[in-house]
Design a protein around this nucleic acid. Structure first.
Length: 904
DNA sequence: CAGTGAGCGAGCTTCCGCTTGACTT
């Protein structure tokens, strides 16, 4: 029997909706996007691979046409949808009503290609039976402007990521990445660390007193803090800037107490009695927090349950799939009518009718670019289950409880009370007993008379020193003119603190406020910058690695527009214009990529990067220039360079521990590190012949042994060194081993022509050397054991071309149909490959030595041949090769040439 | 960051946003 096929995005949603729509409908899910730009070279169709823009899969020269593929893991699912469509007499595309959802609907249409049946776009914002039935009855058309906006977003992100990342590979390190979102996230963390590094603390003092209101008062003792001296307010932390100086707004108006002044004042106040100068009472009122959206859930789960963003999301996913909560990736704080009713009913039941506001509370979204395709995150259903009724346990229980409490509290009355500020005045005495300064103390209190929502839910704080919303401080009921005595007055010192590092939760909140990233990606953004090594966690704090300083500096200097904090927000505005049909996708992409007017295009920036000095980029002064110390980010991590004992500039080096936060690398710390360079030295004993101390260390090229030269050795004398053999390790190496290693290079003997043959270890392993003629050895042990006879035998052989003893083929396949040459599979430096003697072709991911046949090999070789001979390919491939070789140095010429070639 | 001689077969890394997979006893 024919049915109507409804496609939504999520399987869990499909199940629920299926129940609401009933017979005649088949509800399936797309499981998110079904097509995308190819993610890697392996997924890129052969027909576009060789195009100049093949790597991008976007034809930048012809209308930015994207080339989409169905990812491997989605193919089976697409087949399933197609077969369901065969028996359908109507297709409803019911993906989310936002930019991405509209695009998914269009991709479904374009991929499934329904024939001769009506196709409708169905949208809803809450999953309740009436909402779904109404949506099915009132479909609309696909909004192609919205789809265009999504494509623009997708293509822009691709161009940004896939053009800028390779710049980093060339200039900083292979495998790095840049992107619209991750780079700004990294920049936030780096900028915060820079603030901390620039920060200078200020110290200031004040007086804290405990006062006694007298026996009439039930609440007798209360604390107060100094407020002013002779009418001038006493400086507090917020009066100081990050430079450690009083802010200009405070200068001249406040009095900055130092220790001696504060202590003198305290002493002068010993016998003082005070009078109440003023009592100021203000009503206190607090409204409930909005129901959870993705970011606020992540923050509270972090503060209260100690869950990382990714753990929170996976626990929430399980709750969602099992029908306990609504969808967890949302930027909306809206509750459906049913949810509001359920929350209010629950409030009445649990706390009583006096806690239920007269009218339901409505929460408008605070998020500017909110797409509002879903509800807030709340308990599922038309009536809420209490946590105890769910039968949940562990993390799921705790997260459900959090969501439930927050939702219920959001439909409760305000908390009300009073806040009171009391000022007490008294006169200090000078040491001589004369009248000193007039001193005012201030005490503040808060009393909550009706807790309202706070009874159910109090938001956590990121900073332990911040008072929670339900914190109360009671003060005695004093009146102006009352006399008060001090039980104690003490001077206390304080220091300003640098701005705190971001945590996962606070970084996510910052990104959301700046409209960067989406609910489905917040958790993974953190994962990306951690995985790339840009940032690491110290406790819950996110600390930037020096690598991030290098990368961000490059981006700031060469891609200022793209890395700006405003970039995404501006992009969102443009996308909205495209969605509204007021701007063109291609015009905007062209401006971004090729530039226009004042806007410099991305392509030009990338093409003209030749002059970037990678060394300069990775060098950071420690302290000011006078310190003579700088930090370098090398391939093996950060290291310091500073003056050696003779004062030679930057001659001494030392590693920087991986876990030393950048703001802790002070000049003093750097000097300490430079004074104790290198890693651990393992003393092996003294050399039986030279008497010199022999040590083993880990170095740039791996573990090695070396001698320690005496203090009085000539300055240019160099200690002998030798790499450990692969069979040895630092833990087990003996003095005996070390002596042998230090004896290398070993003179094996003289050849017939009188030239000396030596055996030594080198970059490519053990080898023999006779003048400029070298031969590889099979094993390191031969360095110590090979005899002159054996060496001469090796030299009697003609020099091996290529890899020394050509390894035996892994498999013989037969003859190639084209060249007629025998084809074999071999293992090489870059993996397994097939060769016919002239051409070599690496096996692809889908191939294996076992599975490869002569037919497959012929195919690979034919592909390889099509690219031309290895050496002749130099013309076309030279630039490519150059690019790779220059990873460590400069790629100046290569990029500009490429630019010229592409322009034509 | 210890300084050590060749010649030779590359291909790939990467973006942001949607959404769940899962090879086993």
């Amino acid at each position: 029997m024919a049915h109507k096929l409804v496609i939504v995005e999520s399987p869990a949603k499909a199940r629920t909706i299926g129940g609401y729509l009933g017979q005649g409908y088949v509800v399936e899910s797309s499981i998110g996007h079904i097509r995308d730009l190819p993610q890697s070279a392996a997924d890129t169709p052969a027909k576009i691979k060789d195009k100049p823009w093949g790597r991008l899969a976007v034809d930048v020269d012809h209308g930015f046409e994207p080339y989409y593929v169905v990812p491997r893991d989605k193919r089976a699912h697409i087949s399933k949808l197609k077969s369901l469509l065969k028996d359908a007499d109507e297709l409803y595309l019911a993906t989310d009503e936002d930019r991405e959802g509209e695009a998914i609907a269009w991709h479904l249409l374009d991929e499934l290609k329904p024939k001769g049946i009506p196709v409708k776009r169905m949208v809803f914002h809450e999953i309740t039976k009436p909402a779904i039935q109404a949506a099915a009855a009132n479909p609309r058309e696909l909004d192609m402007d919205l789809v265009e906006a999504q494509e623009a977003r997708r293509i822009l992100d691709r161009l940004y990521g896939y053009e800028v990342s390779p710049v980093l590979w060339k200039k900083v390190m292979s495998g790095l990445s840049a992107g619209r979102v991750q780079s700004v996230a990294t920049r936030l963390v780096v900028d915060r660390e820079r603030e901390r590094m620039r920060f200078r603390l200020a110290s200031y003092w004040d007086l804290e007193g405990t006062f006694d209101a007298g026996s009439k008062h039930e609440q007798r003792m209360f604390p107060a803090r100094i407020h002013s001296v002779d009418g001038a307010r006493v400086a507090r932390g917020s009066d100081f800037g990050p430079d450690g100086l009083l802010k200009s707004s405070a200068a001249g108006k406040v009095v900055h107490l130092d220790r001696s002044r504060a202590e003198a004042l305290a002493a002068g106040l010993e016998d003082t009695t005070y009078e109440v100068r003023s009592v100021e009472a203000k009503p206190y009122r607090r409204s409930p927090y909005a129901p959870f959206r993705t970011t606020t859930l992540q923050q509270e789960a972090s503060r209260k349950l100690g869950m990382s963003a990714s753990v929170t999301m996976s626990v929430a996913q399980r709750l969602y799939e099992n029908g306990f909560i609504t969808y967890m990736r949302t930027d909306s704080t809206t509750l459906s009518d049913a949810a509001v009713g359920a929350a209010r009913a629950q409030v009445r039941e649990l706390y009583g009718a006096e806690y239920v506001p007269d009218a339901p509370r409505v929460y408008a979204s605070k998020v500017k670019n909110a797409q509002e395709a879903h509800e807030a995150i709340r308990p599922a259903g038309d009536t809420f289950r209490t946590p105890a009724q769910t039968g949940l346990t562990g993390e799921q229980f705790r997260l459900y409880e959090l969501i439930w409490m927050r939702t219920v509290a959001s439909q409760m009355k305000d908390a009300v009370g009073q806040s009171v500020t009391i000022r007490l005045g008294g006169r200090a005495q000078t040491p001589a007993g004369g009248p000193g300064e007039d001193v005012v103390f201030s005490a503040s209190g808060r009393v909550i008379t009706f807790h309202g929502f706070l009874k159910a839910y109090v938001e956590g704080t990121d900073d332990a020193s911040t008072a929670k919303d339900d914190a109360e401080t009671r003060l005695p009921a004093l009146e102006e003119g009352d006399a008060v005595s001090a039980a104690s007055v003490t001077a206390s010192g304080h220091e300003t603190k640098p701005p705190a590092r971001y945590t996962e939760a606070t970084l996510i909140r910052e990104l959301e406020e700046r409209e960067i990233g989406r609910p489905s990606t917040y958790a993974s953004i953190i994962g990306t910058i951690l995985n790339r090594g840009y940032v690491y966690k110290k406790g819950t704090a996110l600390v930037p690695a020096w690598l991030a300083f290098s990368v961000i500096r490059l981006l700031e200097e060469h891609f200022p527009r793209q890395i700006s904090y405003e970039f995404t927000a501006q992009m969102e505005d443009v996308l909205d214009e495209i969605a509204a049909g007021r701007k063109e996708r291609n015009t905007e992409l062209a401006e971004f990529y090729f530039g226009s007017g004042d806007v410099e295009g991305l392509k030009k920036l990338v093409d003209e990067l030749g002059e970037i000095d990678a060394r300069e980029l990775a060098t950071f002064p420690v302290g000011d220039a006078e310190s003579g110390i700088h930090l370098r980010v090398g391939r093996y991590g950060p290291y310091l360079e500073g003056p050696d004992d003779d004062g030679t500039a930057f001659a001494r080096r030392a590693n920087v521990p991986d876990d030393l936060p950048p703001d802790e690398l002070t000049v003093a710390k750097a000097k300490e590190l430079l004074a104790n360079p290198a890693g651990e030295e393992i003393a092996l004993g003294s050399h039986p012949e030279t008497g010199l101390e022999v040590v083993a260390k880990n170095g740039r090229f791996g573990p090695y042994v070396t001698e320690v030269l005496p203090e009085d050795a000539p300055k240019n004398a160099k200690p002998r060194t030798g790499s450990l053999f692969k069979s040895m390790s630092l833990d087990t190496v003996t003095l005996d081993d070390a002596v042998k290693l230090l004896s290398l290079p070993r003179v094996v003997g003289a050849a017939e022509d009188g030239e000396e043959i030596t055996a030594q270890n080198g970059r490519y392993g053990p080898y023999l050397k006779k003048g400029s003629d070298s031969r590889s050895l099979a094993s390191e042990d031969q360095l110590l054991s090979i005899t002159l006879d054996e060496a001469l035998k090796i030299y009697a052989q003609p020099k091996q071309r290529g890899r020394a003893a050509a390894a035996a083929p892994l498999k013989e396949l037969g003859n190639d149909p084209v060249s007629g040459q025998p084809v074999v599979v071999k293992a090489g430096r870059f993996g397994e490959y097939v060769t016919d003697g002239e051409y070599n072709a690496t096996l692809r991911k889908e191939d294996s030595v076992e599975s490869v046949t002569i037919e497959r090999a012929a195919e690979l070789l034919a592909e390889r041949r099509a690219k031309g001979p290895a050496k002749k390919a130099a013309k076309k491939g030279a630039k490519k090769t150059a690019a790779k070789k220059t990873t460590k140095k400069s790629a100046a010429k290569k990029t500009t040439k490429k630019a010229a070639a592409k322009k034509s």
